[in-house]
């Protein structure tokens, strides 16, 4: 009995030590905790790493975090980063809607999003990526690094999910509409958000003060819908279009949309009616 007790005590003490040791290792607040590495870009002076929750670039909205470390392994928190992705399809090249890379306050971390219009290999295209940094007066960069943008699938793992659309509006301009939230849809009330960019390579200017009419449907349930959804409207504070989408059950939901300009004129998409069970503009959410 006494021996058993002693064993237990020593196991307990060992466990405490091990766990404490682990904590110490990570303690200078690793800014990438919970993130997975996508790709590293290293030269003689600095290593820039791209991270996100899935550890991959993917078709549609992809949030990316960056860290930059010096040769001693110290995280740099006063760098400036810029990037430029470009897809080379042989006959043509284009970039994709994206944000600037900005500093996350309080952390040695930088963030950006890319709304990838295509995945790597689509139309035999290759994504090339330029990344440059500036730390104080020093600067450097990486050019034409091949990145791998994965396709986005529905839960069946086979069918491409409809989460980013390029449309020709009634005003003769082309727009890219990208679904951002819900990333983790649930039964009940969900925040929904999206970006609208003008489809004008290479800059893809963000469009403000438009709106997206929303009508979620379940095509395999005789186009069942839920009540109390809110259209996506421009949030000046968050610089994104925000609304509410309600899911009465799990399953495959088609989020039918109507793109409207600041004068509320419909530019693309159509309302659901008896003869028309889908809008020409829609996203898919399935869970």
């Amino acid at each position: 009995m006494k021996r058993l007790y002693r064993i237990l005590v020593s196991v307990f003490i060992a466990a405490v030590f091990i766990s404490c040791g682990k904590e110490e290792e990570n303690s200078p607040a690793d800014p990438t905790e919970g993130l997975k590495l996508i790709q590293e870009f290293a030269d003689d002076n600095y290593t820039v790493s791209a991270w996100n929750e899935r550890g991959e670039f993917r078709l549609g909205y992809t949030k990316v975090y960056f860290t930059i470390k010096d040769k001693e392994g110290n995280f740099i928190d006063n760098a400036k980063l810029t990037s430029f992705p470009e897809m080379d399809m042989g006959m043509m090249k284009h970039s994709t809607p994206r944000s600037e890379i900005i500093k996350v306050s309080g952390k040695a971390l930088y963030e950006a999003y890319y709304n990838f219009l295509m995945y790597s290999g689509q139309g035999n295209g290759v994504w090339y990526y330029d990344l440059s940094y500036k730390v104080g007066d020093a600067g450097g960069g990486f050019e034409d690094v091949v990145i791998d943008v994965k396709n986005a699938f529905r839960p069946d793992g086979k069918t491409q999910a409809s989460i980013i659309k390029t449309v020709a509006g009634a005003d003769d301009k082309r727009y890219v509409i990208t679904l951002v939230e819900p990333q983790n849809p649930k039964v009940g009330v969900n925040e929904i958000s999206a970006y609208i960019h003008e489809s004008k390579s290479p800059d893809y200017p963000a469009i403000e003060n438009f709106s997206l009419g929303l009508d979620p449907r379940m095509p395999s349930m005789e186009n069942h819908s839920s009540p109390n959804n809110s259209d996506l409207i421009w949030s000046e504070a968050e610089k994104i279009y925000k609304g509410k989408v309600n899911f009465s059950m799990t399953g495959y939901w088609k989020l039918n949309l109507i793109l409207r300009n600041e004068k509320k004129e419909a530019l693309y998409g159509n309302p659901i009616s008896e003869n028309n069970d889908s809008s020409s503009l829609f996203f898919e959410v399935e869970f």
Binding site: R154, D156, S220, M249, G251, Y252
Partner: peptide
């Protein structure tokens, strides 16, 4: 739990 006739779709649960 409803199983869609489109077998690629996730079951609908409520």
């Amino acid at each position: 739990t409803m199983y869609s006739n489109n077998r690629n779709e996730m079951p609908m649960f409520m």
